[in-house]
Design a protein around this nucleic acid. Structure first.
Lengths: 147, 147
DNA sequence: TGTTGTTTGACCTTTATTGACCTTTAGTTT
DNA sequence: AAACTAAAGGTCAATAAAGGTCAAACAACA
């Protein structure tokens, strides 16, 4: 358990959870220095352990004043997948609207994204069956879960 | 976040939003003096952070009584409307992909938004005519123009 | 032994910062 | 009016300061 990658992972996890924060910022070279390892090792840990799938979002900037920022984004996929299930189990306009609004309120859809989905839903009215329209919606939501 | 460029950006952003104004004027040398940096650094920040893509317009005048004026840009509706026209005039898969990617590259669509639109397009394949699919896309783009 | 995960270092790309030099403008002098 | 001058802002290239990538070596383990 005492390999470098684990130590780095724990260090970052500690910064993230220890102080009840949802986000932490670090400098790659600084941390590498502190933990006596190659800077690229930090990148390795970030890309293998702090993935979107595990509920993290990592942003960074290069150059002078560069940084790495790590967010907790707990179980986003699950929320999208849940939403997808809801619309396909309740293929009614109100359900669709409710789900979109819910995701929007919880900031899992931006205003623009929500509008895109509403617009799509409106535009297919009368051309497609409700079934087919919600299947599309379901697929869109599942796609978002992957992003 | 203590690099110069960020500090300058925040300063200007503060002047712009803090006082609810849509425009702010500053003098390059004065600000450089105040923030202890090279005047050209102000130019650097203006050209990298206050771009049209990010919704700003920067005007300036040299010489005695010179100034820099920064506006919040009014919407990019025209670009969206243009894109809408292109896809409806060229109802081909490649045009659609090109337009989406173009908007994405110019930061008029986020990655997620672009993916949503691509997904709309893919999911309707085989169900609708190309005509009808591009009409949908066109409407989505026009909706974005309104946001 | 083969496969999977770790570690490093060499090299790349992006971003920031400065300073020397250029251009534009308004005002002043001739 | 033309020429000069001082006071702006603009440009660009050089340099520094980050983080990213990738392949190769290595380790752990089935």
């Amino acid at each position: 358990m005492s390999n470098l990658a684990d130590i780095i992972e724990n260090y970052i996890l500690g910064k993230l959870t220890g102080e009840q924060r949802e986000v932490t910022i670090l400098r790659r070279n600084e941390l590498a220095e502190e933990l006596n390892c190659a800077p690229s090792q930090i990148s390795y840990v970030l890309s293998t352990r702090f993935t979107a799938n595990r509920g993290f979002i990592v942003e960074s900037r290069r150059g002078a004043g560069g940084f790495v920022r790590i967010f907790r984004a707990p179980g986003q996929q699950i929320v999208y997948m849940d939403a997808a299930r809801v619309v396909s189990e309740n293929p009614r306009t109100e359900s669709v609207e409710a789900v979109i609004t819910h995701l929007e309120n919880h900031e899992l859809l931006t205003n623009r994204e929500a509008e895109l989905m509403r617009q799509f839903f409106r535009l297919t009215e009368g051309h497609w069956s409700m079934q087919d329209r919600t299947i599309i919606l379901r697929n869109l939501l599942l796609r978002l879960a992957e992003l």
